[in-house]
């Protein structure tokens, strides 16, 4: 596994507060990596620093071995696409126009458009399935459509790697799955390296080929979800008691929070909940059917 993006002794902070303190990390190429962790654990800070949206106090982010800070930002933009958490939609801009902005790193004021730009935009809109919306104004679209348009913009950049900061936040479940399926296809069919910060552990476990769990600015565990995602890890990282069972659909680890005191009085199944709390063994759970063919499952 070669690393496309790495961090070396990375120190990042905001006024007075250090968020990441000497982080060393390698993100494998050609893999869908998902970063999870509790709020304020530094996962977004890490992603934004790797995307050069934040400047580290010390240390470096390496893109293919070269320090990203020393590369012209335009060159970086041809190799690394970024989707920030809640980008601002320019008023009245059309889908095709916004997706076209992704071609910026290939353009100059004296060469504002090329046939290649046209092809890349068309391809990006097709991949993200927003071709039918090309002439619509982005601010009239639904949240899910809008997110696909933004992803299409980063696809038009035609980069090897794509970094996304909580791309599913503010979307309903169906649209979350839609976006994650799209990211999965990008990895599987196009060989793109995808790195995303996600909140939902189960989605992370299902889609990630490489999972990174963070707490307090440090990496607690990193590896394949099936190997690292255990009840112990969840308790360690999130401070949450849970049961981890195989997902009946994908076979990926499924995190089920244990019953709390409040929950138990409501459901009356205190005993069952208590006995399994914190258990790492999943054998007590009935066997599940393996994943159906073609379902997006984290890379083995």
């Amino acid at each position: 596994m070669t690393a496309l993006l790495s961090t070396r002794d990375l120190v990042v902070g905001y006024e007075g507060r250090t968020v990441l303190d000497g982080l060393d990390l390698d993100l494998p190429a050609d893999t869908f990596t998902v970063i999870v962790g509790p709020n304020a654990c530094g996962k977004s800070t890490l992603l934004r620093t790797m995307a050069r949206l934040l400047t580290p106090r010390r240390g470096a982010v390496l893109l293919d071995g070269a320090a990203i800070r020393d590369l012209p930002t335009r060159d970086v933009a041809r190799r690394l696409g970024v989707l920030p958490q809640s980008p601002l939609v320019p008023e009245g801009i059309t889908v095709a126009d916004l997706v076209g902005r992704g071609r910026q790193p290939y353009q100059r004021w004296w060469r504002q458009w090329s046939a290649e730009d046209g092809r890349a935009v068309e391809e990006a809109m097709r991949l993200a399935d927003v071709g039918a919306l090309a002439d619509r104004a982005v601010d009239t679209l639904s949240g899910g459509q809008r997110q696909r348009v933004w992803i299409a913009m980063t696809l038009a950049q035609d980069t090897d790697a794509l970094l996304l900061d909580e791309p599913t936040t503010f979307l309903d479940l169906a649209h979350q799955v839609e976006v994650l399926d799209l990211l999965h296809r990008l990895r599987a069919e196009r060989g793109r390296t995808v790195v995303a910060v996600l909140h939902d552990l189960n989605q992370a476990a299902r889609y990630a080929g490489h999972l990174i769990a963070m707490r307090d600015g440090a990496v607690v565990a990193a590896g394949k979800p099936r190997e690292i995602l255990t009840a112990d890890l969840v308790r360690d990282v999130f401070g949450l008691d849970c049961v981890v069972v195989p997902c009946p659909v994908s076979g990926a680890p499924l995190v089920v929070p244990a019953l709390t005191q409040t929950g138990s009085t409501q459901t009356g199944s205190t005993q069952a909940g208590r006995t399994q709390t914190g258990s790492t063994q999943t054998s007590a759970v009935p066997a599940v059917t393996p994943a159906p063919a073609g379902a997006p499952v984290g890379d083995a």
Binding site: R48, A51, V76, A77, R78, V82, P84, P105
Partner: peptide, 12 residues
């Protein structure tokens, strides 16, 4: 009209 993060992302 783009926000700063998006603008940096596309190399500006």
């Amino acid at each position: 009209t783009l926000d700063d993060d998006t603008a940096r992302g596309i190399g500006l």
